[in-house]
């Protein structure tokens, strides 16, 4: 079983790495990083913060592009173009297919993020070397942790992509649904906490009801904002271990449940 999952993951990973959009995304990320070095001098005080901000945002955005433009295709195209007929004619169970694809996606996103991290660290090091006085609060540990959680966010997104691809045969539909989940997940927190304030109760009609329904949404859609440690990294604020642990566990459990659900749905699917 592990052998089959690994085999499929490897194929998926290679397919992803050889997609030519990858170069475009890399160029984009490198462009932002280069820009960072150039504009660093424009800022007067918060130079270290801006550098970390830009680096993390570049990594995070590049990751999103990777998942949405290449990652989606890695699974959805299989089904769209019926390559899956070929794969499932080998002794894969449907669950193994799901986990294999997911593992491959994660490997792909992880490898690309790792490469970007190298570039990004180099940028930070360069800017820090150029303006050593403005990095008082900076800590590599926190920076790397923040990058890891950006990555975790992408892993979560991969699970969502796999889930929606297991539902539909159209890569476009899974793209739309995954994108929607991401947008909901990233804004959810703002809305939920806004509705909890007393102001909202006076201003928004049916705030109570909205709050109830959003409560349900918080169980279904992951809170992507929780993985954002950009602020801490930018200001070098210490991260609490328990805080990180809960976030990590949350992501793992969400992924596991989602993939189990995807496997169940996928087992019932037919490929005509």
């Amino acid at each position: 079983m592990i052998g089959r999952i690994w085999a499929l993951a490897l194929v998926t990973f290679k397919e992803g790495l050889r997609d030519r959009s990858l170069y475009g995304i890399f160029l984009f990320a490198l462009f932002v990083l280069g820009l960072n070095v150039l504009v660093a001098g424009f800022f007067m005080r918060d130079l270290g913060k801006v550098t970390v901000d830009m680096n993390l945002s570049a990594l995070s955005f590049a990751g999103l592009l990777l998942v949405f433009f290449i990652g989606i295709n890695l699974m959805a195209k299989d089904i769209d173009k019926k390559t899956i007929h070929l794969v499932l004619s080998k002794p894969f169970s449907r669950g193994e297919y799901i986990w294999g694809k997911f593992t491959g996606l994660v490997m792909f996103v992880g490898a690309t993020q790792l490469v970007l991290l190298v570039f990004s660290s180099a940028t930070v090091a360069v800017v820090r070397w150029m303006y050593p006085n403005f990095f008082a609060g900076f800590s590599w540990g926190i920076f790397i942790t923040a990058v890891f959680f950006v990555f975790l966010q992408h892993v979560l997104l991969c699970a969502i992509v796999v889930f929606f691809s297991s539902l539909t045969s159209s890569s476009f539909i899974s793209l739309i649904f995954s994108l929607a989940s991401y947008i909901v997940g990233i804004t959810l927190e703002e809305v939920v906490f806004y509705l909890r304030t007393p102001t909202a109760n006076e201003e928004v009609a049916g705030a109570e009801f909205l709050q109830r329904s959003l409560e349900v949404v918080t169980w279904l859609v992951p809170n992507f904002a929780a993985f954002d440690f950009k602020l801490e990294a930018a200001h070098g604020l210490a991260l609490e271990f328990s805080h990180l642990g809960v976030t990590f566990g949350y992501a793992c459990l969400y992924i596991m449940l989602l993939l189990i659900l995807a496997s169940v749905i996928f087992s019932r699917r037919e490929f005509n």
Binding site: A226, H243, G249, Y250, L253, L257, I260, V264
Partner: peptide
């Protein structure tokens, strides 16, 4: 399948509610 659900769902519930209360605190 049900065994996995029986373990994972309560765990998820635990982490989900913990995460959200942590977020509330952080905010």
């Amino acid at each position: 399948f049900f065994l996995a659900l029986a373990i994972l769902v309560p765990l998820y519930a635990y982490f989900q509610s913990n995460l959200w209360s942590q977020r509330a605190e952080a905010r």
